[in-house]
Design a protein around this nucleic acid. Structure first.
Lengths: 144, 144
DNA sequence: ACAAATATGCAACAATGTTGCATATTTGTG
DNA sequence: CACAAATATGCAACATTGTTGCATATTTGT
């Protein structure tokens, strides 16, 4: 079990690696991502932090993390935008998710299934694929 | 080639089958769907109709069509919500899309690839899948 | 410890989505 | 065809979500 101190150190390193300065907001938001192990949307940050940060700062922080390849977006069928931590294979300039996203209809949580690969899709003639997003909805392990 | 009159008649029948009254708004919006052959988002309706309908009416109309299984939503990674016409296999109570959605990075259009089947996804133990959404992004036929 | 670079918070705004209610349209019936 | 009941629409007012400019605060490298 990593202590709180170790987590904070890990986050600091991650930020420095991405050439970002280490600030309270960024540390706290990354902490939330690492603890949640699922996808978060903007409103979660206001709830989870007790709105200790300005809305604008949260938007800008998420955008920065996206730009640096620290987090990625997950497709949804509503107006919310969900974000999840990227694994090591994502970098600033080469940014793919090679895993499947699962949204539980019971608890509403969305998680990344790192072990589940996205299958190859055979497209009709004339279409060129760059990226494939798969979102499975159903009932998750914990809600079963 | 179906004439305008035939299209209007077809739309009227579709609405009556769903036990909805036939109104100008609904007819016009379905007409747009049938002509576009792709996914539309809310702002498209205001553009395409020259904002002849109230925003609220458009929102309510889309919700009604969703409820009746006439249209379905397509996942996106932004705040927009995209809708597309359902094919005949969708009904009010059994509502799946068994096809792949393709979003072109050039023209921004999203289309349903009816011929392309969604592959089976092998989930980790404990997860039950109800629905699988696949969105491929890349370059479409016309933009190639 | 300092200056330069960067991040934050506030205010003001823009865009998007929702609700209640009065008015208008559509539908089924005679 | 005319009428009443059911349904849909449009307006106003509001709630939520996301954006921009700019002054202040924090972080970083020296």
């Amino acid at each position: 079990m990593g202590s709180k101190q170790q987590l904070t150190e890990r986050i600091g390193n991650l930020l420095r690696e991405s050439k970002l300065s280490v600030t309270d907001t960024r540390t706290k938001i990354l902490e939330l991502f690492m603890k949640s192990n699922g996808a978060l949307e903007h409103s979660d940050f206001e709830k989870l932090t007790g709105s200790s940060f300005d809305r604008v700062t949260v938007y800008r922080t998420l955008q920065t993390f996206l730009d640096k390849g620290i987090i990625h977006k997950i497709p949804t069928t509503d107006t919310s935008v969900r974000y999840a931590l990227c694994k090591s294979e994502c970098t600033e300039h080469d940014h793919h998710d090679h895993h499947v996203h699962f949204k539980c209809e019971e608890c509403g949580n969305t998680v990344c299934l790192e072990e589940t690969n996205v299958p190859a899709i055979h497209l009709p003639k004339g279409y060129a694929a760059h990226n494939v997003e798969v979102v499975v909805s159903g009932v998750c392990k914990s809600c079963k």
